[in-house]
């Protein structure tokens, strides 16, 4: 039988890491030691934060690596499915989901005191075959839900009903103007209040 003092091994002969230290393994910590330890952690936090704030290169990924990463991120944007929109006079047209969401986000952001968070779009089941012969992967946008944040203490925050109407109007106008889309419904959900 194995005692807690003997090193245990697994089937491969490797030592097993005790999940929790056995009671006598670790010394009892004094209040003074605990305070010194806590102070050390606090100072580490403060110093790291100060270095980060000052842009010290020792606590940052190199600028070249960060630039390369950002290029990769932009190269890997998820454009999503192609969406059917009404044909133009000169032919059929489709846009990516990313384009649709960008139009919506920018429209919401133009409304004073409102900030776009995320949009959800529901599509008609049929593809664009019925819209000028273009076969998009998704049908026409049918309903839009806009999740937004409102600036705390702003005029918009004092009249949320009006603000929601302004947001709805801005989104509807942008969709009509930029993409020729007129969804049946645009819901606005005020989800957060932000400081500035």
């Amino acid at each position: 039988m194995q005692t807690p003092h003997e090193p245990e091994e697994n089937a491969q002969g490797a030592p097993i890491e005790h999940e929790l230290p056995v009671e006598h393994e670790l010394p009892v910590e004094t209040a003074e030691q605990s305070a010194a330890y806590d102070s050390l952690i606090r100072s580490a936090h403060q110093e790291w934060a100060a270095l980060e704030k000052s842009g010290d290169p020792s606590v940052s990924v190199s600028s070249g690596a960060l630039a390369a990463l950002k290029r990769s991120v932009r190269a890997e944007v998820r454009r999503g499915a192609q969406i059917s929109v009404p044909p133009t006079r000169r032919g059929p047209m489709s846009v990516s989901e990313l384009t649709l969401h960008t139009v919506l986000r920018r429209a919401v952001d133009t409304v004073p005191d409102a900030r776009s968070l995320r949009a959800r779009v529901e599509y008609a089941e049929e593809g664009a075959a019925s819209h000028g012969g273009w076969s998009g992967e998704r049908g026409m946008p049918r309903a839009v839900t806009l999740r937004i944040s409102v600036q705390l203490g702003s005029p918009g925050a004092r009249d949320l009903v009006r603000l929601a109407e302004d947001v709805r109007g801005a989104a509807a106008a942008a969709l009509h103007r930029d993409l020729g889309i007129d969804p049946d419904r645009i819901d606005v959900h005020i989800e957060d209040l932000h400081d500035q």
Partner: peptide, 22 residues
């Protein structure tokens, strides 16, 4: 912007928001 806002906007496809998160 606060973190939650940035994450939601990045999920919406906003690359600028994700760059701030980076």
């Amino acid at each position: 912007m606060d973190e939650r806002t940035l994450v939601l906007r990045a999920q919406d496809g906003d690359v600028d928001a994700f760059e701030v998160l980076i």
